[in-house]
């Protein structure tokens, strides 16, 4: 992996990695996922191991997501989130931030 070059990326040449992929999720009345359509099958969620919320970038295109780390029947673990602004579900592997924001990059 290459260290951050501290220069603005040229538009059109950079492809974001790890974009959210739409996924079909059946949620209960409280908004918690109960079944996930995964690899052609509707699998029940047997456990929710973690949950967190991200509200960010309200100053440009607002982001409001509610993440769930779920375990499906069969043992598969997925990180899914509900886009609270569009009311849509996505699957997206999650990595916590590796470094703090640089004071010069704001």
């Amino acid at each position: 992996m290459v260290a951050h070059p501290r220069t603005s990326a040229r538009p059109g040449t950079v492809r974001p990695l790890n974009l959210p992929r739409p996924i079909a999720v059946e949620a209960d009345s409280s908004g918690q996922p109960v079944r996930v359509f995964w690899q052609g099958r509707l699998l029940p969620v047997i456990a929710i191991h973690d949950r967190w919320r991200i509200d960010d970038e309200w100053w440009r295109e607002e982001i409001a997501r509610r993440y769930f780390l779920v375990e499906l029947q069969g043992g598969r673990r997925l990180t899914i989130f509900q886009d609270l602004l569009r009311d849509a579900w996505y699957e997206q592997p999650y990595e916590p931030p590796r470094r703090k924001r640089s004071p010069m990059s704001a």
Binding site: P16, L17, N18, P20, I54, E57, I63, P96
Partner: peptide
């Protein structure tokens, strides 16, 4: 904190 912003 937004995963798709971290790497490209």
């Amino acid at each position: 904190r937004i995963p798709e912003r971290q790497l490209a």
